[in-house]
Design a protein around this nucleic acid. Structure first.
Length: 492
RNA sequence: CGGGAGGUAGUUCAGCUCGGUAGAAUACUUGGUUUGGGACCAAGGGGUCGCAGGUUCGAAUCCUGUCCUCCCGACCA
């Protein structure tokens, strides 16, 4: 059939592309580097968004929306931030088209309609937001400001991959303003914790919480916190970041407040974000050669019910029994689909829903009904079992929870097996080439060594884990003294 | 942005070397038989050959340009 997926062992990249395209998550578009997120993929993103949005609100944040266009003069105000993004900015220079006199029926950019000041299409919104915050903040009584926005951003990437790196992507960006450094740092850490909890409890994706080195830090931040996940091919993926921005943006945009002593102070800032890249992480973390494996808590369809008809007279009986099951599951809040479509047979449906990663499939035929049972298949292990119809919905709900737990534990074990402590340079390279995953090694703390290691092995320091054990050692590359191990990996 | 590969029916692809007016499988539509792991029979519809130029009596095929995708590299919070 045309739905064949390239196996992971044959070509991991192709496997990923096949999965995304053939399970109906996304499509390529007519625009370079930009994808169409299809309804099935968008449904997963909506689930992620809804959960995160609630978590943000539970921690005191509110949503707002800022413009997609940022005047160049605002964008360049915070120099490091501007420089960091300059190479990948889309820029609007004109505001009008006109018919092309030399090419009937075609349009051209109207040279008369040049903007006085170019508009940068936001690669991130710190500039426009801090320019706005200046007007919102006068006194310590105006702080903190805890705002999040759900938006699209554009980063003109040279090489794109579905979900993992696209020119346009969807994300949320939180931007907070605080009176004190301590409060801002607490906020940064709190949001990292939110991301980690979301990844582990909802995506079933174990992550390492850590701090980025200066080289890997967000442009304009004093400190970047991150959650790092490991994909099945042993490459690391940065799944979310939370930045302590210090007073950099407050100074660039002159945002001050007066404290209780009526003295002006610069405001402290944070920003934090996760994007549709999480979709890529979700796909790569759990899925297999037969298709997606989705964690039940984020799956658009948690249970699919496939009827097995036998002769036209069986349909009413099977349908009515199926409806009972559907009603019970729906009443319990389970997202269930009853696929009674007649244009494909059961075997085809089985394969299709496996491809789409639906966690649980229930098959129901005359034989089952006679015996008062149904055939239940779980996607994560491919195991089938027979369950009594009596109390079926409770059993299915328990099974969904078990699947959620199982794929997390499986990913956790894989991740833990893929952290290798290494103490000499030859072994460092060998582990990267032959085993991949995270390499835990001593580093002398200098950007030069980090750069050199990247140049030689393509591995970067993914993070310095939070609450890292302090132990004396020697840098795996330079041999200089080091006080702790850091995690290296080749990354997406 | 450099190197390589590709773009022909909804999809996967053949046809291109050697120019002669478009083909398979599958999907789709209709009717029928079916249904416990990707059903079968019969009939039917569907493509400005990525786009734009050029060569030619004639271009999917040859030439030029351009857009999109994949792989590798450089780049990337």
């Amino acid at each position: 059939m045309s739905k064949e997926i390239t196996s992971r062992s044959e070509d991991y990249s192709q496997w990923y592309n096949d999965l995304v395209l053939k399970s109906g998550l996304a499509d390529y578009s007519a625009v370079r580097g930009c994808m169409v997120i299809k309804p099935y993929g968008y449904a997963i993103w909506e689930n992620m968004r809804d959960v995160l949005d609630k978590m943000f609100k539970d921690t005191g944040h509110v949503n707002a929306y800022f413009p997609i266009f940022i005047p160049k003069s605002l964008f360049e105000a915070e120099e490091k931030n501007a420089e960091g993004f300059a190479k990948e900015c889309a820029v609007v220079t004109h505001y009008r088209l006109k018919t092309d006199p030399d090419n009937p029926g075609k349009l051209m950019v109207d040279p008369e309609a040049k903007l006085e000041e170019e508009l940068v299409v936001r690669p991130t919104s710190e500039a426009i937001i801090w320019n706005t915050y200046k007007g919102w903040i006068q006194s310590y009584r105006d702080l903190p400001i805890l705002v999040n926005q759900w938006a699209n951003v554009v980063r003109w990437e040279m090489r794109t991959r579905l979900f993992l790196r696209t020119a346009e992507f969807l994300w949320q960006e939180g931007h907070t303003a605080h009176a004190t450094k301590e409060e801002a740092i607490t906020e940064t850490e709190q949001m990292l914790e939110v991301y980690a909890r979301f990844a582990e409890e909802w995506m079933a994706l174990p992550v390492v919480k850590g701090i980025k080195t200066a080289n890997e830090r967000f442009a304009g931040a004093d400190e970047t916190y991150c959650i790092e996940a490991l994909m099945q091919d042993g490459k690391a993926l940065q799944a979310g970041t939370s930045h302590f921005l210090g007073q950099n943006f407050a100074k660039a945009f002159d945002v001050t407040y007066v404290n209780r002593e009526n003295k002006p102070e610069y405001v402290w800032a944070t920003s934090w974000g996760v994007s549709t890249r999480l979709m890529g992480a979700l796909v790569m973390a759990h899925s297999d050669d037969d298709g997606l494996i989705l964690p039940p808590k984020l799956a658009p369809i948690q249970v699919v019910l496939v009827p097995i008809y036998k002769g036209p007279e069986s349909k009413p009986l099977i349908d009515s029994k199926a409806q009972e099951i559907v009603s019970a599951l729906k009443a319990a809040g389970v997202k269930v689909k009853f696929d009674d479509s007649d244009n494909s047979r059961p075997g085809w449906k089985f394969a299709e829903y496996e491809m789409k990663g639906v966690p649980v499939r229930v098959a129901l035929g005359l034989r089952d009904i006679e015996q008062g049972v149904a055939e239940v298949a779980r996607r994560d292990t491919k195991e089938k079992q027979t369950m009594p119809l009596e109390g079926l919905s409770e059993k299915l709900i328990a099974l969904l929870e078990e699947i959620q737990q199982n794929i997390y534990l499986k990913a956790l074990q894989f991740r833990n097996d893929q952290i290798t402590a290494v103490d000499d340079w030859a072994q460092f390279q060998q582990v990267l080439d032959e085993k991949a995953g995270f390499v835990s090694a001593h580093w002398d703390g200098t950007p030069e060594t980090e750069e050199k290691i990247k140049e030689l092995t393509k591995a970067t320091i993914r993070c310095i884990p939070l609450n890292n054990t302090q132990e004396a050692g020697k840098c795996v590359y330079s041999g200089n003294p080091s006080s702790q191990r850091v995690l290296f990996a080749r990354a997406y």
